[in-house]
Design a protein around this nucleic acid. Sequence first.
RNA 1: GAGAGCGUAGCUCAGUCGGUAGAGCAAAGGACUUUUAAUCCUUGGGUCGAGGGUUCGAGUCCCUCCGCUCUCACCA
Length: 528
Amino acid sequence: MTDSQPNDPATSAGNDLGVHQAARLEKLKKIEALGLDPWGQRFDNRLFIEQVRGKASEVQFRKADGSSIPLPDFDGGQAVDYKAWKGEQGAGEEIGPEVRVAGRIILMRTAGKLVFLNIRDLTGDIQIMIPKGHVSDADFELTKLLDFGDLVGVDGRLGRTNTGELTVFAAKLHFMTKTLEPPPEKHAGLQDPELRQRMRYVDLTYNPESLQTFLKRTKIIQSIRSTLAKHSFVEVEGPTLHTIAGGAAARPFVTHHNALDMKLFLRIALELHLKRLMVGGIERVYEMGRVYRNEGISPKHNPEFTMIELYWAYADYKVMMDLTQQIIVEAIEATGQGYQLMWGDLPIDFTPPFQRKTYTELFEQHTGLKIDDSEGIAKLAKKIGLDPTGKHPDVVVSEVFEEKVEDSLIGPIFVTDYPASLCPLTKRSSSNPNIAERFELFIHGMELANAYTELNDPILQESLFKTQLDGMAEEDSMAKMDTDFIRALRYGMPPAGGLGIGIDRLVMLLTNSRSIRDVILFPLLRHE
RNA sequence: GAGAGCGUAGCUCAGUCGGUAGAGCAAAGGACUUUUAAUCCUUGGGUCGAGGGUUCGAGUCCCUCCGCUCUCACCA
């Protein structure tokens, strides 16, 4: 491997990948032989390709009399005959700014003693033309050692080729990084969903829509933070290792601290620590972060996912509703999209205000039954394949609601005012004790946000905790009574509205991604 | 966890009724000074996911296992 064999690497390699790798290693050695560093160096003052494209108007035609005229609009997408246009202008030459760019070679063509590269950076693609004679002989030698995927830097003049394509006419090449693996197919990119997730680095480079999705995700998250900053929210970081996995009904991941010989759980929710901070006087508090639930995997579920929870002192669930709408609307604006989005083939209209309907209203509208008609509801439950026997009538209502109503909610729609018995940990409406001050936001059957007027009565909270734990089977009851949380409430948590939003699902909706795995950079996969 | 589907060259994909493994891109060699997925000529590249079985003969049929995708369940 170290001494260079006289025979062709193609014949000495055992398989095709070996051939690709051997060819690239061979070129790497030749680059070193030219006295160049195949792994590149610091490269100051380069422009992003987007910035270079912004200089397109500086490319002009200077006539013989010294006056400069702008070029016709070449960027309509169609190739044009720039050569003919130049011919009509008479004597003169094209002028353009000197630029420095760097990026990955995604396309490469040679036409005799001309080499065309298309390079890509974070912001876009641009064509590079390298004519023999315009660069040093060593640089032109180097073009023969370039492979798809290599990183190069270029100094050159911005101009246009005969077809009007904006192009950097290279004066100097700077080799940046050799790639030792071949890129995916150059038209189709990387298609295999498993490979796209496992090798996200390849996916991001060669599937621009994948990169755009993740860049949008970042913009959405930045937008949420900025919306909350407008309302004077304080962002905090709670612990991810919990001694008691509380705040939601989900199975936690279990881990262990060696030095303390202590069983620990990865957090399943952010709620209980944020509420402690409310007691501590951080009146508007939120955390956006990862939670871990030891549950199944589906297009809507990943074992670790990102959620935001926030608590607003002296507010209630109605304030949360306004805030939820503002967060989503501003996030859409931040992605540069209009309010009319597509979700697969289905449209979603995010034009505010979002619909608001009560749970009871929706239930009666979709089932044609009164919500207190237990017998009728039990009959309907049986008809749609549910088993209502022995269940509390409110539980049957909830199951029927999930079956008959939720999936048909196109939304965005706020479902408000849940039956109190379904949400024991929520504050009751002061005007009607059978109603819990809660809403959920649904979009195309997907639950996107969940909010409450929070219960801050420690005595009631404790007794409800106990009731809830009593009702749980042993293996489901991973959680224990969080006595410290109750103690915190006893020190006084202000009345407050609380809100949780599934960030991954929001990103799915705003990027038209049908799977959560398309909006999580590195979703959980089995061992390769 | 249950059911269905898929796995063929580095990548994207064909592969008929069970009869010697195919294409495009990529790679190697060559031609070309304005190409746009450049084009043209030549060449090499396969443990058909793994293992077992049926058969004269298996990419193809059967079984087991591994991985992925979809649907359902748990869940957000």
